[in-house]
C-alpha cells in the first residue's frame, strides 16, 4: 500500500495560498512525522489526505489510483480535541460502533472499560474519550492512520499507553501512520522519518 500526495496546493476561499507543491509518500508499516510551526497548514494537509477537504491543485492517490470515496475511507484521522469529534448526544457505544464493531480484546488493548460504553461523552475525561476516537478510527479497512496531535492533551502515562497500542495494531495490520506533533521527543521516539512542513 502506498499513499501518495502529489503537488498539493490549498487556499481558503479567494485568499492567498496556504501552501503549494507539497509532496508526500507513505508506505505501509511506515511511521512518518510531520512537524512545523503552527498555522502553516499541517492539519489542513491531513484533512486533504483523509478527504475532508479538496485541494485546489494536486492529487491524492493510493497505489496510483484515486481513492474511492463512496465507501469506508482507507485514510482515517484522529483529532487533537476528542470532545469535538464525538456526538455529544450519542452514548459512546453508538459512536464506537458507527464504523465497525471492535471486540473486547481490542478495547482492552486501548484501555477502554466496558462501563464507559454506556456513558455520555461529557461524563468521560479527555484521555478516556480519545481512546474511543482512536478505536473508532482503527477499523479493519483502515490502511493509513493520521494522528493529528493525538495525545497532546493527555498526560504522559496515557500518551505512552495509547501510542504503544496504536503502533502494535498498525504493525499487526500492515498499516501506515502519519504523526503530526510539536513534541520533538515523541516524533523521535515513534517515527521512521520526518517531513518538515
Amino acid at each position: 500500500m502506498l499513499l501518495e500526495a502529489k503537488n498539493i496546493g490549498f487556499k481558503y476561499g479567494a485568499g492567498d495560498w496556504l501552501f503549494r507543491h507539497v509532496d508526500l509518500q507513505v508506505e505501509a508499516l511506515e511511521v512518518v512525522g510531520i512537524t512545523g510551526p503552527s498555522g502553516v497548514g499541517k492539519t489542513t494537509f491531513s484533512r486533504i489526505l483523509a478527504d475532508y477537504e479538496l485541494p485546489n491543485e494536486g492529487t491524492v492517490t493510493m497505489d496510483g489510483k484515486p481513492i474511492m470515496t463512496s465507501s469506508y475511507h482507507p485514510v482515517q484521522l484522529v483529532f487533537q480535541h476528542p470532545e469535538k469529534a464525538v456526538n455529544p448526544r450519542w452514548k459512546l457505544r453508538r459512536t464506537l460502533n458507527e464504523g465497525w464493531q471492535p471486540n473486547d480484546d481490542f478495547l482492552d488493548k486501548l484501555g477502554i472499560k466496558q462501563e464507559w460504553l454506556n456513558r455520555w461523552p461529557n461524563e468521560l475525561s479527555g484521555g478516556e474519550l480519545q481512546r474511543f476516537c482512536v478505536a473508532r478510527a482503527l477499523g479493519p479497512k483502515t490502511k493509513f492512520l493520521i494522528a493529528d496531535e493525538m495525545t497532546t492533551m493527555l498526560d504522559a502515562v496515557t500518551q505512552a499507553q495509547i501510542w504503544h497500542a496504536v503502533l502494535d495494531i498498525a504493525k499487526e495490520r500492515n498499516m501506515g501512520v502519519l504523526v503530526i506533533s510539536h513534541d520533538q521527543h515523541l516524533i523521535n521516539r515513534v517515527c521512521t522519518r520526518v517531513l518538515e512542513f
Binding site: A156, V157, T158, A160, H185, N188, R189
Partner: peptide, 9 residues
C-alpha cells in the same frame, strides 16, 4: 512515561 525517557506505562 515521557517519550524522551522510557516511554513505558
Amino acid at each position: 512515561a515521557l517519550p524522551q525517557n522510557d516511554f513505558t506505562w
